[in-house]
Write a protein that binds this DNA or RNA. Structure first.
Length: 823
RNA sequence: GCCGGCGUGGCGGAACUGGUAGACGCGUCGGACUCAAAAUCCGAUGAGCCUUGCUCAUGUGGGUUCGAGUCCCACCGCCGGUACCA
């Protein structure tokens, strides 16, 4: 049967046709049948900034390929999209273009939804939402109230990171090298009241549960989170002040605590150091207990911002007081040192110059004694530097001779017995400050009552929504300056009260959106998501997004999941079973950005070549985890390939069944072509389910097409298209649907069994090498014996081995023959 | 400094548990078609040389092995994270 209907590849027509078809048939809605095997494929949702960029295209194309693959395999697939729609840019747009943040946001969403559709992405329509929708805010506010009631949220005043440009507080995670993650402005430290989520309560579980996800997450993401949490185990003990020193301090202090991870070096203490802001220093300054020179120096050190001190040389001064060594009772001088941080531990340290680089540097500068207490296991000390490695204790009373790792525990025990200290765990992780002094965010659902203090809003009054009539000027919080919004009644006593005007960090919204998608929330309005839906769909089987969220979003979402679990809302410990971190899209070696003028607009590519070309190129150009260098000629290449695929489909015949092939009648090229086709099919399973190496899968398909075009056998050719259209459908859905529809009535989109006989080769090439160097090549039948192969091999390399002694013959079946000769 | 990752043609990148280095694509060169061009198709394409073939090539230098891009040691470079965290 001849097939002459495909004359020209017109992506625009084909793509619109299929997009309409999918839309009309609701092709991508998850099914309610909970007996079906499920896959929840999620790409990180976008911020509706106005237009999608290539990073989005990459992110969503990867996710879409997986979703389409599993759908085709018969899974019930949840593949949703939504909008992370609160945030600063909406307010910036309001200031710049005098457009209301809400209007700006929702117009952007409408536009971007169209862009995603034009890419042929198979998102569910019923599960879409924006986090700024009041229905979403309502549940978030409920969670926050529950957290407050369960001691996971509190309001307190503390030092915060303040960005003057964004006019708001930032969480520690949002300060990148001392600058705002959004606008790059230098951060100031301010003391402000604010709301804190106690993520630190979950520090240990966040660490421990990495075990549960380590098979599915990139190691480096887990490492980054581990470092961020920064657990360290050690000893906390108290230094007692000497009698004289106590008197000098007017008996206001009897000592102070220090934390160390090296209790094994405790006998090497030769001084102790306090942070410049330590309370004892404060007290001594207030009471004029320093000589003039000393005080001058202390005031100088204190005048330098702690973060600027790192760059400086170590500096300090003797404070004129002493403490007693906890075990030996020896007198130990107390110094002030600019390298001791007031925020970490207790703001004071024991100093062991022999075995700590910082202490050593400081001791050298001020000629303080160095006492060696750990001897390297082999070799001697280099007394010009601190020895921080493992070893055996010396000069350490009854602990001498112990290995230092054992001594750690032993010394902790002794200190505990003496009652002057105990084992302690310290974390670098700080509580998550979620207050933002901005308008376009979810209001914190609390009320300040003059009589009752801070009280949560009643659940039945949720959501607390934003007022529409605001003026966004960029200075001050519009909710604070709104004439009436914050005026309310206390939900407890009914008296006049004021609403909290801080809104929530937008990372709160993105911490639980994965749960919201699990239910058809348009139908079930009395819950954030139905428990049965959550149990069925969670965890997300595959999460895809940028590495930039390794700490921020991914840590918050993991925490939030655990908190919601403990509040009884969800059933899982971890939200994302597997994570794929896709690399950035670059152009001319740099990240695409307006300021660099190297932006390629996805819409332009779609208009010129079609969505399939864009999708194919972006998956072909690099493996997903690596950076991807944009290449205009590479895009052209992808387009040419699709053209060939489309036009050559003409060589197939129409059929509803995969053609039966009689292998015995095939010639060499035909067998070769079939083998490549089936190899591509075989590889596709690995690619979609495990490796995500779309680039090599596509290369394999190209090889198969190239091989098909060398033959003239309609059966093999048609079989090839039957299979390759199936393999490529998740990547280039429009063109494959079009061809499969015309040729195969879409019947080729089910599961295809691998024909093992097609993968078998009749003949094998063996490279023959002499002493590991390739010298010849022979072709033998697959069932040739070892002796036969060796005989042929020797014949092929006769001139190299004649008059030489054969020392060894190596034969690796299916691989290589290597002959080792001497002389 | 510490932790992690990566170094392969002109370019993006292949190479499963050590077994023919450079798949596939781009680019370049040559050819066909054309009055011509574009498009398309066919072929060549790591470097060098004494060009039936040989030598050298996976950041550098060593090592293990019959055989190393792959394993081990040392170093160099780039990227990312983090940093006086006691």
């Amino acid at each position: 049967m001849e097939n002459k209907m495909m004359r020209e590849y017109k992506p625009a027509e084909i793509e619109i046709k299929w997009q309409k078809y999918w839309d009309k048939n609701n092709s991508f809605e998850p099914k309610e049948d909970k007996n079906l095997p499920k896959k929840y494929i999620l790409s990180m949702f976008p911020y509706p900034s106005g237009r999608i960029h290539m990073g989005h295209v990459r992110n969503y194309t990867i996710g879409d390929a997986l979703a389409r693959y599993y759908r085709k395999k018969g899974f019930n697939v949840l593949h949703p999209i939504g909008w992370d729609s609160f945030g600063m840019p909406a307010e910036n747009a309001a200031i710049k273009h005098h457009i209301h943040p809400k209007k700006w946001t929702y117009e952007n969403i409408d536009y971007m939804r169209g862009e995603l559709k034009r890419l042929g992405l198979s998102f569910s329509k019923t599960r879409e939402f924006a986090t700024s929708d009041p229905e979403y805010t309502r549940w978030e506010q409920e969670f926050i109230i529950k957290m407050y009631e369960n001691g996971l949220l509190e309001r307190r005043t503390q030092k915060v990171n303040w960005c003057e440009h964004c006019h708001t507080v930032l969480a520690n995670e949002q300060v990148i090298e001392g600058k705002c993650w959004r606008c790059d402005n230098e951060i100031e430290i301010k003391e402000l009241p604010g709301w804190y989520i106690k993520i630190t309560k979950y520090a240990e579980e966040l660490l421990a549960d990495m075990e549960k996800i380590k098979k599915g997450w990139p190691e480096r993401v887990l490492t980054m989170q581990k470092n961020w949490i920064g657990k360290s185990v050690g000893l906390k003990f108290k230094f007692s002040l000497s009698k004289d020193s106590k008197q000098k301090l007017k008996n206001r202090f009897d000592g102070y605590e220090v934390f160390t991870t090296r209790p094994d070096t405790i006998y090497g203490i030769t001084y102790s150091a306090l942070a410049p802001e330590h309370p004892i220093v404060d007290f001594m300054l207030e009471n004029g207990l320093f000589e003039e020179e000393t005080e001058k120096k202390i005031r100088y050190i204190r005048s330098i911002l702690p973060k600027d001190r790192q760059a400086m040389e170590k500096e300090g001064v003797y404070l004129g007081i002493d403490v007693l060594h906890p075990l030996t009772g020896e007198k130990i001088p107390v110094w002030l040192a600019n390298f001791v941080l007031v925020e970490y531990g207790s703001g004071a340290v024991m100093a062991v110059p022999a075995h700590d680089e910082r202490d050593f540097e400081f001791a050298k500068k001020y000629n303080l004694p160095v006492k060696w207490v750990i001897k390297p296991l082999n070799g001697e000390f280099n007394k010009n530097e601190a020895y921080t490695g493992e070893g055996v204790l010396i000069n350490s009373d009854e602990f001498s001779g112990m290995k230092n790792n054992e001594a750690k525990e032993a010394i902790i025990k002794k200190i505990e017995t003496l009652g002057i200290g105990k084992k302690e765990v310290n974390y670098r992780l700080r509580d998550w400050g979620i207050s933002r002094q901005r308008y376009w965010g979810a209001p914190l659902p609390f009320i300040k009552c003059p009589k009752c203090g801070i009280v949560p809003e009643k659940i039945e009054n949720l959501p607390i929504t934003l007022p529409d009539d605001v003026e966004i000027t960029g200075s001050g919080n519009p909710l604070e300056s709104h004439p009436t919004w914050k005026q309310t009644k206390c939900p407890v006593c009914g008296s006049d009260a004021v609403r909290e005007t801080d809104t929530m960090d937008t990372f709160v919204e993105s911490s639980w959106y994965q749960f919201r998608y699990t239910s058809d929330f348009h139908k079930y309005k009395d819950v954030p998501f139905r428990s049965e839906d959550e149990k069925y769909w969670m965890p997300v089987d595959q999460y895809i997004g940028g590495i930039e969220h390794a700490i921020l979003h991914l840590l918050y979402a993991r925490f939030f999941t655990k908190a919601l679990r403990d509040l009884g809302y969800v059933s899982v410990d971890e939200p994302f079973a597997r994570l794929l971190t896709q690399g950035m899209v670059l152009k001319d070696g740099a990240k695409m950005s307006k300021s660099k003028g190297n932006v390629v607009d996805p819409d332009d590519i779609i208009k010129k070549y079609g969505a399939d070309t864009a999708r194919l190129f972006i998956l072909f150009a690099a493996p997903p985890e690596q950076e991807l260098e944009w290449s205009d000629s590479g895009v052209e290449g992808a387009y040419r390939f699709l053209n060939r695929v489309f036009l050559n489909a003409e060589k197939c015949y129409k059929t509803d069944k995969k053609p039966e092939i009689n292998i015995s009648k095939l010639n060499k090229n035909e067998k070769e072509a079939r083998r490549k086709v089936y190899e591509a099919l075989k590889r596709s399973k690995e690619t979609y389910e495990k490796t995500f190496a779309f680039n090599t899968l596509i290369a394999g398909c190209m090889e198969a097409f190239n091989a098909l075009n060398k033959i003239d056998n309609a059966d093999v050719y048609t079989e090839g298209y039957w299979i390759l259209m199936n393999v490529l459908e998740p990547i280039i859905p429009h063109i494959t649907n079009e061809i499969s529809d015309k040729l195969f009535n879409l019947k080729n989109f089910g599961n295809i069994e691998i024909d093992e006989s097609a993968l078998k080769q009749d003949e094998i090439n063996y490279p023959i090498s002499i002493n590991g160097k390739k010298r010849a090549e022979i072709t033998v039948s697959v069932d040739a014996s070892k002796d036969e192969i060796l005989k042929n091999a020797k014949k092929a390399v006769e001139k190299y081995i004649k008059e030489k002694e054969i020392v060894k013959e190596i034969f690796v079946p299916g691989r290589i023959v290597n002959i080792v000769v001497k002389g």
